[in-house]
């Protein structure tokens, strides 16, 4: 072990100081959300003196918003939206990704170019026709409507194709020589090996379904996920910041807790799949 010189120590301290300052900047909005959520309106709008910590940590705001906004229902809708999109995305993309990566069939290149084309155009271009479809099927304001744009995924197909392409070919050849047909080879050999790609796609899909705001606002008025319900609430109680912050906190906590438990998978799932585009 080489001992650190004084200069190196100074650099190391300086780096930590910078990183801690940035960390504080990143955390202040969350901390302020928590502090405000536990205050009364009077405390939150007191300027002289400006109140940082609530004198009494009171949970009234939470009780009010849980009852007024029917939070159990919002959690259920959000969960249904997320699960629906994740299951559909992972299932369809796993199949299609494998075919695009490893099988040869006529029309493959044309079909894959459609996948790539979808990824290049801005997503808003699909929204009006998708809305008209949901509307003409008469399923506006349902869980199905929330899931609808995420039934298939071009991005996920591309991502899983990359996963399958990085797997060695030997296993697959061996399975086929042993008499497995393509379906069996896929199901028993290849799909299990692409698990990490599926997990990444699942997390990516879940987080973006959770963050989706425009589509839920458009297609549903009553069956709302958390994001749209927060937007609606802001329109109604625009000045009651303690309640708005309590609702925001309740909306953020489940995802943040999951993130803190599965940080590695989250960061890899979101960022590295975004990086493979």
């Amino acid at each position: 072990m080489e001992s650190m010189t004084r200069r190196q120590q100074m650099t190391s301290v300086l780096i930590h100081v910078i990183l801690i300052l940035v960390s504080i900047t990143m955390l202040v909005p969350f901390i302020w959300m928590i502090l405000t959520a536990f205050k009364t309106i009077t405390e939150s709008t007191s300027v002289d003196p400006f109140v940082i910590f609530p004198s009494q940590w009171q949970t009234e705001n939470f009780v009010t918003v849980i009852n007024n906004m029917n939070f159990p229902m919002l959690y259920f809708n959000t969960l249904a939206l997320i699960l629906g999109r994740v299951v559909c995305a992972v299932l369809t993309a796993t199949l299609a990704g494998y075919a695009f990566a490893r099988l040869e069939f006529p029309g493959k290149n044309l079909m894959f170019s459609l996948v790539m084309f979808q990824m290049m155009v801005p997503g808003q271009i699909f929204i009006i026709p998708q809305y008209l479809m949901v509307s003409s099927m008469g399923v506006l304001d349902t869980i199905f409507a929330l899931i609808f744009p995420g039934l298939v995924t071009a991005f996920g197909t591309f991502l899983l194709r990359q996963s399958y392409m990085s797997l060695p070919k030997d296993l697959e050849e061996a399975a086929r020589l042993d008499g497995c047909n393509i379906g069996q080879t896929f199901l028993f050999i290849m799909a299990p090996l692409a698990r990490s790609g599926m997990v990444a796609l699942g997390i990516f899909t879940a987080v973006f379904a959770y963050k989706d705001l425009m589509w839920p606002l458009i297609c549903n008025r009553n069956v709302m996920p958390l994001s749209a319900a927060l937007a609606k609430m802001q329109g109604q109680y625009s000045n009651n910041y303690p309640q708005l912050m309590a609702a925001s906190l309740l909306a953020c906590i489940p995802m943040i807790v999951l993130y803190l438990i599965f940080q590695k998978q989250f960061i890899e799932g979101i960022a590295t799949s975004g990086g493979k585009l």
Partner: peptide, 18 residues
């Protein structure tokens, strides 16, 4: 890394409000 990445998993509606 965990702290810097945190806003990615927060709902934009909540982020905007705070």
């Amino acid at each position: 890394r965990t702290i810097f990445f945190l806003p990615m998993v927060a709902a934009p509606a909540a982020v905007a409000m705070v």
